[in-house]
Design a protein around this nucleic acid. Sequence first.
RNA 1: GGGCGCGUAGCUCAAACGGAUAGAGCAUCAGAUUUCUAAUCUGAGGGUUGCAGGUUCGAUUCCUGCCGCGCCUACCA
Length: 675
Amino acid sequence: MYRHLERRLAQHIRDFLRRMYSLEVDRVVIEQPPNVQFGEYALPLAFELAKKLRKAPRKIAEEIVSGIGVIEGFEKFEVAGAGYINARVNRAALALAVAKGEEPGTEVPSGKILVEHSSINPNKAAHIGHLRNAILGDTFVRLLQYAGRKVDVQNYIDNTGVQVADVVVGFQHIDRKSLSDVEQLTKRPRFDYYCWDLYARASQWYEQDPENKKIRLKTLHELERGGNETAALAETISTAVLRRHLETMDRLDIEYDFLPRESEILHLHFWDAAFQKLKDAGVLYFENEGRNKGCWVMRRAGTGKPLTAEQAEEKNESAEKNVSEADKSVSEEDQKVIVRSNGTVGYVGKDIAYHMWKYGLLGKDFGYRKFFLYPNQHQCWISAEQGESEHPHFGDVSEIYNVIDARQSEAQNTVIEALRGLGYNPQADHYTHFSYEMVALTPRCAAELGYELSEDERARSYIEVSGRRGFGVKADDLIDKLIASAQKEVDSRHAELNGSEREKIARQIAVGALRYFMLKYTKQSVIAFDFKDALSFEGETGPYAQYAVVRASNIFRKGGMDADAFAKELGSKISADELAKFLAGKDNDELWDLWLAASKTAYIVDQCIATTEPAYLAKHVFQLAQLFNTFYHRHPILAEGDEQKKKFLLATAGVVRRELIRALAVMGIESPPAM
RNA sequence: GGGCGCGUAGCUCAAACGGAUAGAGCAUCAGAUUUCUAAUCUGAGGGUUGCAGGUUCGAUUCCUGCCGCGCCUACCA
């Protein structure tokens, strides 16, 4: 409801400015006052207008306040400080609307959105860095779905790259395993852990003898070509590891719709189709000299002179030859090799083709096979050269979000520039690199894990994980630890519950702790991972919020009432006048703050989507839980003597409980029945 | 060298297009439970927002320079 009122206010202000001053503003800035005593919305509008209107801000603010008139849902407007306009809403009306629990809808664009996340090399166990990616991606999917968007979730599988090749080399040349040996190994639990170690061993093995590196290159070529024994072994390994990744992510309630694989991008000749278009459009050109002689190259993103909007327009209007001349002058440094001199295509090229497919611009499609059926019957599909005849339709989307770490931003931008160069500007504009920073280990954590550190590394605040060194925290290990720790607590607190109930709760708490931990940091901050913080269930954590829900639930259980029904039917239980009385005035600001926070779910979700920043939701959930815990402490609800007051307090608990459950669900966190 | 990003309390992090007194958690210290379970709550201490300029009514936020740190800068993916 908070969002709904904000939009209504913005619209009225726009109309008013047009009427009163003949001013058109595209965006009315509406802030949240630092304290609820100032009201629910704050407009710094008068400061902005001061220059345009050549009047003192305070004077303008007074004019607006006296002229704005009646706006439904708002009680009054006040001028504060040097010219702030503070808006006060009708508290009872807002509370009643919130209690009903139905957010007035907004227009939802019809197009489908594709979110790509996880994309873990299928050659070793997933680690905490992959967890951050998957949790960010999955949460963003849930945010979009909450906002009413249709979303396809894809997990790109690089099954023909060097990382898979390294493990293949490990099996063939270090451990000397046959295909059937490996097939047996894949049936053992956590085959991906075996590969984790083997990958690290293979990386060392390359250092021992330059000849070994030649084997690696040969293996890589065999994988890319396909149709040979090495490729068959790679297929067995990467498919088994991929299944493990899906299982790991499913422990966190993360699911995918489709798994496009690089092998199909190669074998279905996606690149050939893209290559032709890129050459025709002049995006790619052949280099005749220097370091990149014999390669097809394009300008690396971010190396051109930055163009302003006007310059870009001029450029479009000016003669074509200027453009190509400018492109030809790209220095070697600024060139990105797309096709190597031996004719093979690099990963950026494949990525360009893949993204043309996403937008339905390639004129080719994958084959589709059923791959993984989740316990909830959701079917996950995988790409295939020859697919099944009946399959859902993927691709042809109108917006793309790629959850890929910040280190790849240049490559991502190069793909966007290629689309632009092909003339697909709207598609390029709706291509979002959802960039986030890595998860690193604190030196203390690395030491705990028994890794030897150089003096240099010990002095740093964090150390990057490294698959090649086998250096990192495996996802399943962390999840196991969290579950064990939660299980211990649940067992000691709830002897009355049976084993499977306790197990389920422990899992919910573990998932809540982990997902919250990965979401509470803003994307651009490197997470310096530490077991102490990650395993905490106290303070700013998922379990803290889950516990608030349990406390609310307990009130209703003890009172023999249905929490949701109680909240929803507030209007028939208490008159509007009485409700107003309970919420009015300074004495009740603290209660009102709680209601106001509970009204913000849709507003926060919008903010998260607009900024591709799920951390705002995590902060909001924590604040709401914190306000509730204070409320819980101050008001022994069931002991309340005044019947009307008691109903009001119950409704408060019911509404907050419902909104907490909702918001947690958007973060992929379940609310346990007991803790 | 070039590109991107970061620097805020002892530690880990917030601060939505520039806005009202820079906020949380952890840690430390002092308190709270015959009550709807303390995985909780109340309070205290802790800050020249890396440094120096600039723009502005107003800067943690924008601009310039400097210092420190990270990532990218492969005919790897």
